[in-house]
Design a protein around this nucleic acid. Structure first.
Lengths: 263, 263
DNA sequence: ATTGCCCTTCCACTATCCGGAAGGCTCCTT
DNA sequence: AAGGAGCCTTCCGGATAGTGGAAGGGCAAT
């Protein structure tokens, strides 16, 4: 009768995770006040939570007072399937592809409305790092992202198609155009991007399939757009993708739920 | 009174972390009931917490119902200094040492009453994996552990000296003997173990120093005990350790608090 | 059919969390 | 030197959000 449930009910656990979630590549070290602002929580509340997290080593505090992700979280993170399993199985295959062309090779899984880069091989002569393990990139502007999106469910596609951010003038921002492309990708079995996320970078990506043929991840190669015909890479990627897929299923990693992020 | 490990956590955040803490290398996938038992929390409570954590992708649930660390924790973990910074700076040096002898090379930091393996280089011909990144080993039975312990504060030493577990018949379990050895280590600048953690393995370790000369980590090499004289490795390790220490300070990693776990 | 184990939902109670207010701190600026 | 602007910390009464026992359903062995 008082105030309706207008405010999204927040649980303590949710708040604690919100605090942790304020940390990202651009904000690896933050002051208390910064966390408070970014998490949109009262300073006092954050103060209490952060102390608790620090006591448990989920956060560490440097001598300058800034907070940072602590060793407990790191240690736990290494136990995730995305890290140890997928990585372990996939690395040799990625290495093979890399040896062939010396272009950056990466693997990504779905994470909400983004694609999450799980592992990446790149040399010193490859493109500047647009993505590192742990990065989350737009689905509609990356090769791996398009693959994941094309094989994603209707709900996901709808959500993504409704907000197509522009990164370069090649970025596809027309839902209709992208939708058509996704259909093609699903049929042909590979995706391609041409400077859609960053100038000078093109990519090819293929799906990685788990149990029952579900697409659980994507394997991609990113090269400088120097006029080479990336098309000839497609067969190699497809063969590698198929071989790796088989291996993933054998390794018991065919379970998408275990790798991905759901709604 | 020092060894209060199972602190009956009265806060929600603490409980949530206790749930996460039930996951380790031996328990990467657990049922709800297993988590409940290991965290020593009522099933209902765990049920609620786990659901919340799952909703936020801190945990994932496989199709068989078992839970596992999720992508959020993994992603956050990559932001930790122990991972990206220390690792990035140290790897080239570790590689150098590895090339020289082809024995396992590792770096560890202090984590409570254990040493936490941060990174490890090993080939197929090296010793069987006793330690992997993320492992936590006893301080008194490893080279890196002894180094960290020798430079640790009195409180830490007291706590560790009071509970010296035995792993092999070479393990030092006499507090007096170990204490003397720690003093020597501090003076000589390196530690040595001989089959104290596992049969057939010996090791040498040196300190890595941060700002103001504080020991923030340890660099070690583990070799099979095949009669070779490990003593001749000491100079190499010490030189490498010193060079790496300098680099760590330059990289702004001289802050022990940021890498280590406190009380 | 029975037993055992696991997961899930329900709900009344109160322990636990909330967050405004106030004060201390360190750097600036004037 | 005084004033201001941020940042961090402690305190505390109020009520929200978490608690966990009980009960029931599912599944797989015996």
């Amino acid at each position: 009768m008082v105030t309706e449930k207008s405010v999204p009910t927040r649980t303590v656990t949710g708040r604690a995770l919100a605090v942790l979630d304020t940390f990202d590549v651009k904000h690896r070290r933050q002051s208390l006040a910064s966390i408070s602002r970014r998490a949109d929580l009262p300073l006092t509340t954050v103060h209490r939570l952060v102390h608790e997290l620090e006591k448990q080593n989920a956060l560490v505090r440097g001598s300058d007072g800034d907070y940072e992700i602590g060793s407990k979280i790191w240690r736990l993170g290494l136990l995730a399937s995305v890290h140890s399993d997928l990585r372990e199985v996939a690395l040799p295959y990625m290495e093979d592809v890399y040896q062939l062309h010396n272009d950056a090779v990466q693997i990504a899984v779905l994470d909400g409305l983004r694609c999450l880069i799980v592992e990446r091989i790149a040399g010193s002569r490859t493109l500047e790092v647009m993505s590192k393990p742990g990065s989350r990139l737009a689905l509609h502007a990356t090769g791996v992202g398009k693959v994941l999106l094309a094989h994603g469910d209707a709900e996901l596609q709808k959500a993504v198609l409704n907000s197509l951010d522009r990164f370069t003038d090649q970025t596809i921002t027309d839902p209709g155009v992208l939708e058509t492309q996704l259909k093609t990708i699903k049929v042909q079995g590979f995706a391609k991007t041409q400077e859609e996320l960053a100038e000078g970078a093109v990519s090819i990506a293929v799906p990685l399939r788990g149990k029952g043929g579900n697409v659980i991840a994507a394997l991609g190669i990113v090269a400088p757009s120097d006029g080479r015909d990336l098309g000839k890479l497609v067969p190699v990627m497809q063969v590698t993708g198929a071989a790796l897929s088989k291996k993933l299923v054998e390794a018991g990693l065919g379970d998408a739920a275990r790798l991905q992020a759901s709604t």
